[in-house]
């Protein structure tokens, strides 16, 4: 079984590498959206610092949604998903590995860009560390919960906008806690409580989401 899971992981990494130009697009979108804000609201460093955490998080949510469909779409269209579902490996585990591979290949690059963006929006150093820790804890949550909706919309031809409609309301608490943590950091206040809440949400979704995703994929086969 572990051999099967390792094979899934390696295959998805190899595929991501082959399709790396496709992976670049959400990253470019991320940078672009964030550069729009100083242009839209003026370059005043204090204003930028105030809206910065919210802007980065909103942009991160939007750009993670862009790449989300990749998670299962190809496998669904070419029948690989069918074959995976017909193997003896438990589907929730396979799905978890796929989400992990997806997170590593599509989201981690966004995290690597975050210092640059913090610079753009004039975040202070403590704010940046808070931002990075919320992103580290929060983005896996985005991938896990997002994968449920991706599974549900697989059978539809035009799932893209619907995916956003389904997911954005669900991500609101994450947005609130994450930006609150960064704001607390900007005031030199402790923010471990916010991180703990995000961590708790991550653990809950880690326990439940794989089953929901597996179920959603089975529904997509009807």
């Amino acid at each position: 079984m572990s051999m099967a899971l390792k094979a899934v992981f390696e295959r998805d990494l190899a595929l991501a590498y082959r399709q790396r130009s496709e992976l670049m697009q959400p990253m470019m979108f991320f940078i672009l959206v964030i550069s729009l804000f100083p242009l839209g609201i003026g370059p005043n460093p204090e204003t930028l610092q105030k809206v910065g955490p919210g802007v980065i998080w909103v942009a991160a949510i939007l750009s993670s949604l862009l790449g989300m469909e990749r998670l299962f779409k190809d496998d669904y269209n070419d029948g690989s998903l069918e074959q995976i579902m017909l193997s003896a490996t438990p589907l929730p585990l396979v799905v978890l590995v796929k989400v992990l591979a997806h997170w590593l290949t599509s989201i981690v690059p966004l995290l690597l860009l975050s210092p640059l963006l913090a610079l753009f929006l004039n975040l202070t150093e403590p704010m940046y560390w808070a931002l990075l820790s919320t992103l580290l804890l929060g983005t896996p949550l985005l991938s896990l919960v997002g994968a449920i909706a991706v599974g549900l919309t697989l059978g539809l031809n035009r799932g893209g906008v619907l995916l956003a409609l389904l997911l954005l309301p669900v991500f609101i608490p994450l947005l609130i806690f994450a930006t609150a943590a960064v704001e607390a950091a900007s005031l030199q206040l402790p923010y471990s409580a916010q991180l703990a809440i995000i961590g708790a949400m991550l653990l809950i979704s880690l326990a439940l989401a794989p089953f929901a995703i597996a179920y959603a994929l089975r529904v997509s086969q009807n």
Binding site: I148, L152, T153, P169, I172, P173, L208, A212, A216, V219
Partner: peptide, 20 residues
């Protein structure tokens, strides 16, 4: 499909409420 989404929503509802 809509059922799964409704359940995801209801799990989230208290969290949303509390966070807001």
């Amino acid at each position: 499909a809509a059922g799964v989404m409704a359940i995801v929503g209801v799990v989230n509802l208290p969290i949303i409420h509390f966070s807001v």
